[in-house]
Design a protein around this nucleic acid. Structure first.
Length: 469
RNA sequence: GUGGUUGUAGCUCAGUUGGUUAGAGCGCUGGUUUGUGGUACCAGAUGUCGUGGGUUCGAGUCCCAUCUUCCACCCCA
């Protein structure tokens, strides 16, 4: 027992105050989700590896927590190897030539949930006959990533997702922008930026510069523009084999600035030969026009052509939410349109679109900006001081009655020194204490003390109740 | 996964070129006050210097490993 206990890297314990603050955020998100017509579902913490692997790209696969098979997985694995190579069972030398992925596949068949979107796609396919489409669901559950922790980056964290499947309507995208705005407004987090882009535009650009086959490399490089600058981006594109001619066609992109409309115009000039690119522009224009008509409360919608989220399943709109200016935090939300996600699980032609809120990062942002309401922890309202068994019994009767009337009341369990009991009330921020000693016991009264003002008065039970309600 | 950074009392941090018994503030405990907390005064205790090895007569200080924290990549909420 000499060793200090600890928790794994990138995980956290939450105390009562933290839990209260977290559920404050969660409840607001939930409320808005339901207001927009989404219904909750839950999926298991872990899935079959096949369900998750290969859905997030190579980098994603690396970050998936694999669960080691239970039982004697090693003995079974040796069996697989010896069947395969006909080598003598127990000859370890053959192990060294094996691919990691091969080994992993045989010793691990389950993995922890990496996000909520892929399990949701699995859910939709598996329950397609019970689901009424378009299907709007929300899901608030933890996900796990074997990432290296940093500020706002954990190995276990919560995502809050809302998705619609079974509708290609762009009104869904419009509503999701409104939903983002509604949640952040309800949280009193003003000035968030909802960045929007469209995968079709990125495909169109790649097409125009003759790099269709390098779409991912191209977008990953472009995504870094505001971070590493124009020259470094070009350098990276060159190193990925994008032609000099193509890069020069991108030139207008690097100086893209200003209002939505102006950006769209310059995009049109680049993309006029690309059918898919034009389609992307039309989609963007529709969303922007609709939002302009409907209005946003506190967030702003901004076109960002360099926005290229790594997930390879987005096909249309791409969203990412940035914290208000001055807060150093990665994105606090993201999402987009995916036309093809469920086809991986055998259900083609089902378009989906969804967004996600990063609970833990929103928490950090609210904390930094001091935006949590003060009354968030709804704790005990009155503590009865314990003077001894006889008095305590009388107190407990009063406590019981108060509780029946919905007053959060408790009795200090031990007849400790008064100072200790008062200090206890103080530290727990309990606003009232009640003193019942011999005198009160005889007169059937209660001395109620306001811990903030120091005032106190002797009351009958009915008076006590009404002043605590 | 790559490179760097951090760890000393409950908390925030000092601690010299390696040298006797490791310090401060806040907090904590007790008392001034046996029916009154938060304010005041007095007194007291803080500790495996992250962990494990090594160098040295001697290590909080130097070296190695490991864990943790934060940062930059990568990627992402």
């Amino acid at each position: 027992m000499a060793q200090k206990p600890s928790i794994p890297k990138g995980t956290r314990d939450f105390n009562a105050v933290e839990v209260a603050k977290r559920s404050y955020i969660m409840n607001i998100i939930k409320e808005q989700f339901e207001l927009y017509g989404f219904q909750p579902i839950e999926t298991p913490s872990f899935e079959n590896s096949d369900t998750l692997m290969g859905k997030y790209g190579d980098e994603g696969d690396r970050l998936i927590f694999k669960i080691l098979n239970s039982g004697d997985y090693f003995e079974k694995f040796k069996g697989v190897v010896s069947d395969l190579s006909q080598t003598v069972s127990g000859d370890l030398s053959s192990f060294y030539n094996l691919e990691t992925s091969f080994v992993t596949k045989h010793i691990s068949e389950k993995a922890l949930r990496y996000d909520l979107t892929v399990p949701f796609a699995r859910y939709v396919v598996q329950h397609q006959n019970e689901i009424e489409f378009p299907f709007k669901r929300y899901q608030i559950q933890p996900v796990w990533r074997a990432d290296r922790p940093q500020k706002g980056r954990f190995r276990e964290f919560y995502q809050c997702d809302a998705d619609v499947v079974g509708s290609k309507s762009l009104f869904q995208e419009v509503e999701f922008v409104q939903l983002y705005d509604a949640v952040f407004t309800a949280l009193d987090l003003k000035g968030v930026t909802i960045k929007i882009n469209n995968r079709k535009i990125l495909s169109g650009i790649a097409e125009v510069i003759g790099a269709q086959d390098k779409l991912i490399d191209f977008t990953v490089a472009l995504d870094k523009l505001d971070k590493i600058g124009e020259e470094k981006v070009k350098e990276e594109m060159r190193s990925k084999g994008i032609s000099e001619d193509g890069i020069s066609k991108l030139q207008p992109l690097f100086s893209l600035q200003g209002e939505f409309g102006m950006q769209v115009e310059s995009l049109k000039s680049i993309l006029n030969t690309s059918e898919v690119g034009i389609k992307g522009i039309e989609e963007l224009e529709f969303i922007d026009a609709s939002i302009s008509k409907l209005g946003l409360k506190t967030a702003k919608l901004q076109l960002d052509v360099t926005l290229a989220r790594g997930l390879n399943y987005y096909t249309g709109a791409i969203f990412e939410v940035a914290a208000p200016e001055g807060v150093k935090m990665g994105s606090i939300g993201g999402g987009g349109r995916y036309d093809d996600l469920t086809s991986i699980f055998g259900k083609p032609d089902t378009s989906g679109v969804g967004i996600s809120f990063g609970l833990d990062r929103i928490y950090l942002v609210l904390e930094e900006l001091n935006l949590f309401p003060e009354t968030i922890a709804d704790a005990t309202k009155v503590l009865f001081i314990n003077f001894g068994d006889k008095e305590a019994m009388a107190c407990l009767q009063a406590v019981t009655k108060l509780r029946q009337h919905g007053v959060k009341a408790e009795l200090y369990p031990d007849s400790a020194k008064m100072k200790k009991q008062m200090t206890h009330a103080n530290r727990r921020n309990i606003p009232y204490v009640v003193l019942v000693g011999e005198e009160e016991l005889n007169s059937g009264t209660y001395t109620l003390k306001n811990m903030k003002s120091g005032e106190q008065s002797k009351l009958k039970f009915e008076e006590l109740l009404s002043s605590l309600q």
